[in-house]
């Protein structure tokens, strides 16, 4: 797609549709006629009726738009990027994070830090992990780059805090082990696309 249409800033030649704003009355008589016409046309009552109708619908037809926010919450899109969650493997319950450090590397606001070590099972273990939500801009790169779908964006968007720096540790974000059955598979930013299989080449296997 070319950028011509964006680069053409000569607004005068574009195809604007002029709204029919009528024409101003000329002369005292015309003005008077307009006043009379408008006065007795009852436009003002149309306005009154519209608001009244809205009120009646709101009160009696359950058309109230208010969400009592702290007590009620609207569902958010899976692509919404709120406070991060750390997911577990459903089969074993072990956390998914392998400590690769890609999120730490890609983070453009430099808010992710992690310590890793060689554990007893000869695996890389995340010994500590923290996100500084005072710096996080919720760009979603960490979730997108994560090869294990371990760090994802969750649905907690209330991140007001008393201090500028607010740190979340690994355990704070990790799915509690007793709530593993409630863990939702992530379908937002950085998740596997439904047609991912079509986009990769198969590697032959000797088994």
């Amino acid at each position: 797609m070319g950028l011509e249409q964006f680069k053409n800033r000569n607004v005068g030649t574009q195809n604007y549709t002029m709204v029919d704003a009528g024409h101003s009355p000329k002369g005292v008589l015309c003005q008077f006629k307009q006043v009379v016409k408008r006065t007795f046309k009852g436009e003002l009552f149309v306005g009154l009726w519209v608001t009244m109708k809205a009120m009646l619908k709101a009160l009696f037809a359950n058309d109230m738009h208010t969400v009592k926010y702290p007590f009620e919450k609207l569902p958010i899109s899976p692509r919404y990027r709120a406070i991060h969650d750390m997911l577990r493997l459903l089969e074993s319950g072990h956390y998914r994070c392998i400590g690769c450090g890609l999120c730490e590397k890609i983070c453009i606001s430099n808010c992710i830090t992690m310590d890793t070590r060689y554990d007893e099972n000869q695996r890389k273990e995340v010994s500590e992990y923290t996100i500084n939500f005072g710096r996080c801009i919720f760009c979603g790169y960490c979730a997108e780059v994560c090869p294990e779908l371990a760090i994802v964006h969750g649905s907690r968007y209330e991140n007001a805090s008393e201090q500028r720096a607010g740190f979340s540790l690994f355990e704070d974000m990790l799915t509690p082990i007793d709530k593993l059955n409630l863990q939702q598979e992530y379908s937002g930013f950085g998740s596997v696309s439904p047609n991912a299989d079509d986009n990769i080449k198969q590697t032959p296997l000797a088994y």
Binding site: T51, A54, M55, A58, L59, D63, M64, H65, T66, K68
Partner: peptide, 13 residues
């Protein structure tokens, strides 16, 4: 309250 209702809001609650 009335203004809220007319704007489909709840007003003070």
């Amino acid at each position: 309250k009335v203004l809220a209702f007319m704007q489909r809001r709840l007003g003070p609650m």
